[in-house]
Design a protein around this nucleic acid. Structure first.
Lengths: 145, 145
DNA sequence: TCCAATTAGATTGTGCACAATCAAACTGGA
DNA sequence: TCCAGTTTGATTGTGCACAATCTAATTGGA
């Protein structure tokens, strides 16, 4: 096959061909989670925060942000909504008054049991071979470098 | 290795282990595009709309939505901003007054040349083998089924 | 002991993204 | 011809996501 005049133009499309599917997949994922999370009163980003806290309670806002790659402008209002919903508590650290520590309430801890079946349902929704899913995951994580 | 009591719990995490990287990658991608798009006065979703229109001018709002998997609640205000910026025109179709046809202005067409180097820069930013990128793309598109 | 620099969050403003709802325009039988 | 049902966008309200900016608290030398 001869090199066509727009071979480079085609090559240029590679990032678009990769970035758009990621963008669209992220939107689709949030849409897929929504019906399962709605009964728990959570959005997908709130669910991610809860996953972090279920794994390790009492983290600072900044710690959560580093784990999820989210800044305070996103997390401050999100955590206030979780507090209003009764899932978490917010208090300043004694040692450093700048730090806001996030703790699970009893209700927040109890929510974990209700959330347990969600990954199952999502795995069903995205009918993908485990091996293919792992390859995807590895590929995506290679982007962060 | 023996099957541990939480082997299923681990399996449950698969969707989280896949969905979160996609979510984080989508955020990172928009952040990576921002400095390159800002000189053109575009956001990433606006850039996607412009890519569609550069490929095929005069589409209806709904056609753009179907291509990008976005609904009218997202596109109506986005297109109004593109119109205010002077990149596109909006007019009702003669044949069917419900349909809004989106056309590129001269300035909108001219923007294409400025946008041309962007995929290059992004490809550099995400240092990923083309083969790996293609595998990723195929895996992501398999999610839509 | 001070105070310049750093760090942790909060605030403000812009722009998606979508559910739910609405209204107008079109279509296809009865 | 009519009108029930469908299609196309627009609107409204909620919740991210982040840049830019701000304030308060802390830290580390001089």
């Amino acid at each position: 096959m001869a090199i066509s005049p727009d071979a480079s133009a085609e090559a240029l499309k590679l990032s678009n061909q990769l970035c758009f599917p990621i963008y669209a997949a992220a939107n689709a994922i949030q849409k897929a989670y929504r019906p399962h999370l709605k009964p728990l009163g959570l959005t997908y980003p709130q669910y991610l925060v809860m996953l972090v806290l279920w794994e390790r309670d009492g983290l600072a806002l900044g710690d959560i942000g580093r784990r999820l790659h989210l800044d305070s402008g996103t997390l401050t209002p999100l955590l206030k909504r979780l507090e209003t919903a009764g899932h978490v508590t917010r208090r300043r650290a004694d040692r450093d008054e700048r730090v806001v520590l996030i703790g699970l309430t009893e209700a927040g801890r109890a929510l974990k049991a209700q959330a347990e079946p969600i990954p199952f349902k999502l795995s069903e929704a995205m009918h993908l071979e485990p091996a293919q899913a792992l390859a995807l995951k590895d590929g995506l994580e290679a982007l962060f470098a």
